[in-house]
Design a protein around this nucleic acid. Structure first.
Lengths: 96, 96
DNA sequence: TTGACATGCAAGTCCAAACTTGCATATCGT
DNA sequence: ACGATATGCAAGTTTGGACTTGCATGTCAA
């Protein structure tokens, strides 16, 4: 499984996760349209496709193939690894 | 406040957070030594310094100046924004 | 089978960011 | 004051990654 942190580094990929979080099982074309309209993302189909590849390798997006369609869904499970890697310690961090 | 996601994207910066999570209030030199020995990080002092700048801008590292020393500490609070942005939804994500 | 639709792949371009290099500043002990 | 220590800054180099471009593959409806 590829690097989840690198996958989250790109703002377009975060917008993809935002959109998939609102609506599951979207195809590449669906995503392209909705990203452009609702998230102001002006990326080409190929660019979004490559972003989906990175997200899929990081385990953040799951894909179901049906005929000529690929339905994409978000998987938030890998995100837990982040807060588990640097857990908050009692009374050490809190805001000033 | 700069991009927390971009700050986490670099493996050396994550090692810095790992080290600061183990031991708070480290100076730049302390960090350089410990990173090399315990985390296999072979970066120059200047490189680490620049990484600390990025982490500080992202709010993940706090600095206390005392004389000629700069003590660095981790602040895990901004990490919450990640899991709060894409919260797990009941019965939608779970593993197959 | 044929054309339209949905996606896949790979080489090339371009820019941000990581790293280096060299010197400057500031603080402490003697 | 002077040397040693700890950090700061900025310009230059280099590498990784985002994006483009062009074509290939695969699926469906007629």
């Amino acid at each position: 499984m590829a690097d989840i942190y690198r996958a989250l580094a790109d703002p377009t990929r975060r917008a993809v996760l935002d959109e998939l979080h609102e609506r599951d099982r979207q195809t590449l074309f669906e995503l392209c349209g909705r990203l452009a309209v609702k998230h102001g993302v002006a990326s080409s189909r190929q660019a979004i496709s490559q972003h989906l590849g990175v997200l899929e390798e990081a385990g953040l997006v799951r894909v179901e193939r049906e005929g000529r369609y690929r339905f994409h869904s978000i998987d938030t499970a890998p995100l837990r690894a982040i807060t588990e890697r640097w857990p908050a310690r009692q009374g050490k961090d809190g805001p000033s």
